[in-house]
């Protein structure tokens, strides 16, 4: 279980998180939503320890993550922008991550699933945005870990890959894993998310299931409900 208490984060004068409280129970798919600049990525990077909060505490399974790094062994992370060292080949990158993690992995299956075989010996700098994202997905699903964090997993994917990704996420969920993701594509969220966490101005504005969200806002689609949510009072 992830427990976040009174998290504050400032970047210069820009206050991104202003006392955010959030509990995420293990198991299920959680979609973190919110307008641009609402702090979704900051929250995720906070959980990963890439962003150091000014105040507040984050703990995973009862252990504070401050200045720790071992806990990341249990997390798979897909970054928002797939920035890889450009002079490495896809194969070398996968081998390197495996070498760093020292865990059993099933990258073969994923490579076939996303049709990446022809790109294995190509340098990452020469790949298209969508192909890079597929490599990104392979890297973040190849280890068997209880927590999977996906920051904008759908960006740049073609429809076929999108379907594969959804199946993959559902498969991981069935294994009892926790999946935390952000997305701006509401159709995707509606299809896969069990619970929605809506961030606004650095706080949690809404947390609950999709039916609860629709009921609260009186709308029939998630897209409209999300658009309408800011006009309804906070409901955590």
């Amino acid at each position: 279980m992830i427990v976040i208490q009174k998290l504050h984060k400032k970047f210069g004068k820009n206050e991104v998180l202003t006392g955010l409280d959030l509990n995420i129970e293990m198991g299920g798919i959680f979609a973190v939503l919110g307008p641009n600049g609402s702090g979704k990525t900051t929250l995720i990077k906070g959980i990963l320890g890439m962003v150091v909060p000014n105040k507040g505490n984050i703990s995973i399974d009862g252990h504070s993550i401050k200045n720790k790094w071992k806990y990341r062994e249990g997390i798979n992370y897909l970054p928002q922008i797939a920035n890889f060292p450009g002079n490495l080949k896809v194969k070398e990158l996968i081998r390197m991550i495996k070498d760093l993690r020292q865990k059993p992995s099933d990258e073969e299956e994923l490579i076939t699933l996303f049709g990446l075989e022809p790109f294995l010996n190509k340098k990452l700098a020469t790949l298209s945005g969508g192909t890079k994202q597929k490599v990104n997905i392979v890297l973040s699903f190849m280890f068997d870990n209880p927590l999977i964090i996906l920051d904008e997993p759908t960006s740049g994917l073609d429809p076929m890959a999108m379907i594969r990704l959804k199946e993959l996420i559902q498969k991981e969920k069935k294994k009892g894993k926790t999946i935390l993701l952000t997305s701006h594509i509401m159709q995707f969220v509606e299809e896969i998310a069990d619970e929605i966490v809506y961030l606004l101005e650095g706080r949690i504005y809404f947390k609950g299931t999709i039916p609860a969200l629709k009921k609260l806002t009186g709308q029939t689609t998630v897209e409209r409900a999300i658009a309408a949510i800011t006009t309804t009072p906070a409901n955590v």
Partner: peptide
């Protein structure tokens, strides 16, 4: 130049 490499490593179980 190794900004990307660094960011990739930061999400891995490696000490800063």
């Amino acid at each position: 130049n190794s900004k990307e490499f660094t960011e990739l490593l930061l999400a891995q179980p490696v000490k800063r």
